[in-house]
Computed example of a mutant assay.
Amino acid sequence: MSEYQYYEFQALDQPLSREEQEQLRAISTRARITATSFTNTYNWGDLRGNPRHMVERYFDAHLYVTNWGTHRLMLRLPKQTLALTTVQPYCLGHHVEAWTTRTHLLLDLTSEDEGGDWVEGADDSLAALIGVRDELATGDLRSLYLAWLSALAAWELEDDDEEEYQTCPEPPVPVGLDELTAPQRALADFLRVDADLLAVAAQASPAAPKKPTRPTKRELAPLIAAMPQKEKDDLLLRLALGPEPRLRTEILHRLRGTSAPTTIAGRRSAAHLLDAAHTLRTERRKRAEHERAAARAQRLIALAREAESAWQRIEAHIATKKATGYDQAVTLLADLRDAYAHTDQNTEFHQRLARLREHHQRRPSLIQRLDRRGLR
């Protein structure tokens, strides 16, 4: 398979000027560039620009996917919507990084899986993930916690220092981890968040508060009147300078505040979460194995009850004198052997098998197949 790299950048809060588009064209002559986007696919070579610098300067979101297992999402948010101090507890190694420029906070979320299956022609797009940015801007930190879980699982594979896991604290736990939004579910898939690790983490997450209803004039008027004058002046200035598509959301968030906490203090260590996830995974696999064994036992009992019909089907397959018929006969015979064994009728099965082998001893291809499956 040839090399595959997909780059997508989106400008959300402000379109690119013609001058900025020309600057981006100098980075790539083949990219599709519009006033709000930059997309390109590489089957050889690399993007000449630095994605971090491109997001810092031009874009609000970036997605990068490769066929060797790299998934990367970068987001840029205005500093007033999300503080670096809020994000830092969720940063872990190079998988979750955050930094600020003069005006923005930037997030860099990465998942690597070289052994994962690559689906050529998959729909790689920011569309399913972009909602995460709005959620973060309004104080919903579940996406940060998901990124931390993804990084934690990757860290476990890269490092086996048990003491580090014991001393690595869990970041603040957002409410509603057991009821993710569509963008958050897409992010969990994109970052390959382990389902058992998420289930364990969600055990300490309170239920999310109900979605606020559409605000009314009666509700907002006293809240606006109570706002500090300087804060109102700042918001009006930003509105006049515009455009800021998410300014309304920010204002509503400020006015309504957070009547219920959006996170609770993390009390578990990385080791505790990883161990609990391992226990949950082991128990789930045991249950699945037990269910498969029980289902197989039922199938074998049913086959034993219809043994005569099975023997007739075996003879019919053999009578075709074709390789596929022989294969079907041998497969059914192996199942029938297990059915007889399950119902304590081994002796009867081997007597009938011996007669079958004797009757068809002039069919060497069939006999060889029987021998290979241990049907002697």
Results as ranks from 00 to 15, higher is better:
Ala202Glu: 02
Ala202Asp: 01
Ala204Phe: 00
Ser205Tyr: 06
Ala207Trp: 09
Ala208Pro: 00
Lys210Asn: 07
Lys210Leu: 14
Pro212Glu: 08
Thr213Gln: 15
Thr216Val: 09
Thr216Phe: 04
Lys217Ile: 11
Lys217Thr: 13
Ala221Asn: 09
Ile224Ser: 01
Ala225Lys: 05
Ala225Thr: 08
Ala225Trp: 01
Ala225Val: 06
Ala226Tyr: 03
Met227Asn: 02
Gln229Asn: 09
Gln229Ala: 15
Lys230Asn: 02
Lys232Asn: 04
Asp233Ile: 10
Leu239Val: 12
Leu239Glu: 09
Ala240Val: 11
Leu241Trp: 01
Glu244Val: 05
Pro245Glu: 04
Pro245Asp: 05
Arg246Thr: 07
Arg246Asp: 15
Arg246Asn: 14
Leu247Asp: 04
Arg248Asp: 03
Arg248Thr: 10
Thr249Asp: 13
Thr249Cys: 05
Glu250Phe: 12
Glu250Met: 10
Leu252Val: 06
His253Val: 02
His253Glu: 00
His253Leu: 00
Arg254Lys: 15
Arg256Gly: 13
Gly257Leu: 02
Ala260His: 07
Pro261Ala: 06
Pro261Trp: 02
Thr263Trp: 03
Thr263Gln: 11
Ile264Val: 15
Gly266Tyr: 02
Ala271Trp: 09
His272Cys: 04
Leu273His: 03
Asp275Trp: 04
Ala276Phe: 00
His278Lys: 15
Leu280Trp: 00
Arg281Asp: 05
Thr282Ala: 10
Glu289Asp: 14
Arg292Gln: 15
Arg296Val: 05
Arg296His: 10
Ala297His: 14
Arg299Ile: 08
Arg299Tyr: 11
Leu303Cys: 07
Ala304Met: 13
Ala304Gly: 10
Ala304Leu: 04
Glu306Tyr: 09
Glu306Ala: 11
Ala307Tyr: 04
Glu308Met: 08
Ser309Arg: 14
Ile314Glu: 03
Ala316Gly: 06
His317Lys: 07
Ala319Val: 02
Ala319Ile: 04
Thr320Asp: 06
Thr320His: 08
Thr320Trp: 07
Lys321Arg: 15
Lys322Gln: 15
Ala323Trp: 11
Ala323Asn: 11
Ala323Ile: 15
Thr324Arg: 14
Thr324Met: 07
Thr324Glu: 10
Gly325Cys: 02
Tyr326Pro: 11
Gln328Val: 07
Thr331Ser: 12
Leu332Tyr: 02
Leu333Glu: 08
Leu333Gln: 03
Ala334Phe: 03
Leu336Cys: 07
Asp338Glu: 14
Ala339Tyr: 02
